[in-house]
Amino acid sequence: MKLMRGGYQIEQRGFIETFFMRLGLAAMVIYTLPNVGRMADLTEQSRPSGLAHFIDLTFLADPTLYQAGYWLTVVALIAYVLGLAVPISLGIATVFHILVMTLYNSQGSQTHQFQIISLALLAQWIVYLVGFFRRKKLPFTHSLSNTAIHFSVQAIAAVYVIAGVIKMLRSKGMWAWQSPDIAVELMKTNAQKYYEYLEVDASFDHRLRVATWLIENPWHARIALGGGLMIELFAFLALYNRTAALIVGFAMLALHWGIEITMGLDFKNNSAMIWIFLINVPFWILWLSGKIAKRDGALDLKRSADFPWKPESRS
């Protein structure tokens, strides 16, 4: 398949671009870790997920222990952003985020807000672990930092492709055809919201209008929602090159915006990860600066993002 050749190469990223991507990821980790009060409630794992099947993670509910882990993670993330001892610093942040979120997701009600962050961390850490254990004969063709970012972008694309593929599998390819029946789900959401405080807010009428439109205009609904399904299924195109990442990134944001105004479901973590890794504003500012300065390529520091920040020519 021609689309699978030519592009899809690991991007060469400068120090500043990588720094901002790491900073963004680190901020997402800190932002998503629950506060100590919320963690103190997680004293059981009634429906274990992932590692919670093998380890009782409720020890993380201990406030002293959790706070120690939290601040150790903050320090580790600062080191990671600066490129210091990345196999260890990134490892601490990855393990802590996954363990905490595994416990959080083992309470009986699953949430899908945090996987994208844990997977992006894990993908990067695997690169650095392989790099550490096989440092004499690295299996990667590019630098560890560039390969790690590429793995993170793959993890992000994977989240969307999975969501698309599962829709095709479970609906036996009929998802777009069935999509107007999302109206039923909207009315369910309305009712659930109402029974929380026995009140209706502005979003109630909005969902009612959307549900009515979906039922009365099934073909328009199929085209609009089918378009969203295509964005999920073809999310891997974001890996073709930076321009493709930018275009697919904005398409994904449009998808989330559409879901938010119709279903009232917000995907702020996903959107933030798209801004950081796909839309990648710092790179485009550097690229534009390079154009203005009539330089070849983006105005970035051609140095490794990892200590001792050695100059890099290629890769």
């Binding site: 996954i98 979120m101 899908h112 844990s118 997977l119």
Partner: peptide, 12 residues
């Protein structure tokens, strides 16, 4: 976790 098959609204 951290894997999921993201089944929300997969079969409407």
């Amino acid at each position: 976790y951290p894997l999921s098959h993201f089944p929300m609204y997969s079969n409407i």
